[in-house]
Design a binder for these strands. Structure first.
Length: 153
DNA sequence: GCCAACGTTGGC
DNA sequence: GCCAACGTTGGC
């Protein structure tokens, strides 16, 4: 089992939205970054745990936990010309983008802010701490546990 | 809303 | 296949 961090803009789709979704579950569409796609395609397994991170908002932070309930499937929005996620260079015969399905697990006792993560010397590998552009990134078990501990402080 | 960082595109 | 230009992301 592996650990991941998924970014989402809470104005578009928040942890609460996931919690309130049918079966507290959603297909994580709209990933249009090759590195993130490759993580989903090559490494992500059903049962993997996922930090939900709110970005582009007042207090960027890890806010909760989800889990992967279904592995990579073709993201249908890439073929929908009216969607923001439309990709004219992709075709159903040779789809370029995929997504996984995740289910809500829990909200953290308190959010762990980007600021706190950056200030934490024990966290060194997390991609979030370096360049923040990746929408899906791996989290080591050590850092996963560390962020969980921080949420209980 | 600004702007730095970085991923992607496309001309050569 | 390089690399400059461009577009996007995301923290502040």
């Amino acid at each position: 089992m592996a650990y991941w961090l998924f970014k989402t803009e809470p104005d578009a789709y928040s942890l609460d939205d996931l919690k309130n979704a049918p079966e507290q579950s959603t297909f994580w569409e709209g990933i249009r970054n090759y590195q993130a796609r490759n993580f989903m395609r090559d490494q992500m397994q059903v049962g993997d745990k996922v930090f939900i991170y709110h970005s582009s908002c007042k207090v960027p932070a890890v806010v909760g936990i989800a889990k992967v309930t279904e592995g990579a499937q073709t993201d249908p929005y890439q073929f929908d010309a009216s969607s923001d996620y439309y990709d004219p260079k992709s075709s159903p015969e040779n789809p370029r983008w995929i997504g996984v399905t995740v289910q809500y697990v829990e909200q953290l006792p308190s959010q762990v802010t980007l600021k706190a993560i950056k200030a934490e010397d024990a966290i060194t590998e997390l991609a979030l701490k370096k360049a923040g552009r990746l929408s899906i990134m791996p989290v080591t078990e050590t850092e996963w546990l560390h962020i969980i501990a921080m949420s209980k402080r």
